[in-house]
Design a binder for these strands. Structure first.
Lengths: 258, 258
DNA sequence: CGTGCCAGGTGCCAT
DNA sequence: ATGGCACTTGGCACG
């Protein structure tokens, strides 16, 4: 048993001491990494079976579970946070059951050999910032409407109407009611359909002319024609300019623009 | 430095020896777990910054990368398999860069303190089986059409028409053309819209009566009414029976049914 | 809680 | 590569 500042390690533990270590770790809300030979059963929205092999089991302090094979960036089995655990040792097999009760789901991991147990308490207060999401494009356009179109005037955003939410709602330079649908990637037919629905809905309620703009950095093949048919517009969005417009700080909230 | 069958461990290593251990591990195609204090930059389809904190970095033998914070089932940053690495030690900071060249994306992890390095070679030949996906419901209905409706006769599946693909296409016991849309979970409005589109499309081309069936284990509130309005049917699917119908082997392919 | 929709979505399979 | 769509999707926001 080695111990660093806040990490405990067990090398080649027997299953009895493993059981104790895991139970202690869980009760103390530590994160736990188990490396060993195991097999897995999942039952819930679907069902799965993973045959025996050497894997890494990762249980986080918040009760999320990941099982990783030696390849692939995605876990082979998992359980989102807030599940509770049952640990038992039956017939030389250590059984870890992770249960989620909201959606009746259970994950059972059976270990017959453990190579390494790491129990740790990690301190992580760092903020995570993701830039140029759809929300940030929205924010950028609200901050600087010229990014969309000269003299565009936003009225509101995330406006609720029957089919869903309108990304941005405003007036164009002619003063015509305008519905803007934002896509952060290459916009496809789906985006056009969504926009058309919103335009129709607004036209019904407002009973005056309504423009529809698809705002995206790129559109897929055929989308331009589809837009033309439906009498909708496309405005190319410059992600770099959006990124520059949106401040590099998290502090400014979108609400601050109104 | 401790060593088990195929796991090497370094506790509280200095950055110099860490650099060596990581480079060796990578060149030997091992999986590596680093636990330490780090910050992260991601640049690619989007951009992100993760401020300093204690995390787990997991590099797999196939060149995939995961960075996990102490909470949340998803990695905060990642990189899919087959990326290549650059390791450098600059100003008491160990910098690990994981680069994917297909889609120009890079992930940079900066460590100023490492608590634990684990380098391992995992052997995992076990098969993974997943059951009762939408595909398997489809397979089950094709095998035993009574699971959908008495005397239903499938004609084809994944039939391509203008708006997309029809899950199952066939004749009901009256010989009427029938479009089946399958949902593996609780079907919502979206599923009804999808089904309606397909029914309309088929009606246009076939110019004879067409039935539409929504096949799902459950439907959401209001969907029944929506179906009634659009003159579409709902057939409840019994997932247990589907699971029994579909053999518990991975070998059988859906093509074998035609 | 359900409903809607985005995601660095990912993954699979089709043309 | 591009397109269409499911996913144990997860996650957030909002009525």
């Amino acid at each position: 048993m080695g111990k660093t500042s806040h990490i405990s390690i067990l090398k080649n533990p027997n299953l009895d001491s493993s059981e104790v270590a895991i139970k202690n770790g869980l009760s103390q809300k530590r994160s736990i990494i188990l490396i060993g030979h195991c097999w897995v059963e999942y039952n819930g929205r679907a069902r799965s079976i993973l045959e025996p092999g050497e894997r890494i089991l990762f249980i986080k302090a918040d009760g999320s579970v990941l099982i990783h094979r030696p390849t692939g960036y995605k876990p082979v089995n998992w359980q989102p946070s807030n599940c509770y655990f049952k640990i038992s040792l039956i017939n030389d097999t250590l059984i870890i059951t992770a249960i989620r009760k909201k959606v009746q789901e259970s994950l059972k991991i059976f270990f017959d050999k453990l190579f390494l147990i790491t129990v740790m308490e990690l301190v992580d207060e760092g903020q995570f910032y993701l830039h140029v999401s759809e929300k940030e494009i929205q924010k950028a356009i609200l901050t600087n409407p010229d990014l969309l179109e000269k003299a565009f005037q936003p009225i509101s955003y995330e406006k609720k109407i029957e089919p869903g939410f309108i990304d941005i709602y405003g007036l164009d330079k002619e003063g015509k009611l305008t519905v803007v649908e934002i896509k952060r990637g290459r916009a496809g037919k789906g985006a056009v359909i969504q926009l058309a629905k919103y335009v129709d809905a607004i036209r019904d309620t407002a009973s005056r002319p309504v423009r529809g703009i698809l705002a995206a950095p790129q559109i897929m093949k055929g989308v331009q024609k589809m837009l033309a048919t439906l009498n909708l517009d496309y405005r190319k969005i410059d992600l770099k300019k959006c990124a520059q417009t949106v401040t590099f700080t998290k502090a400014t909230k979108i609400q601050d623009f109104f």
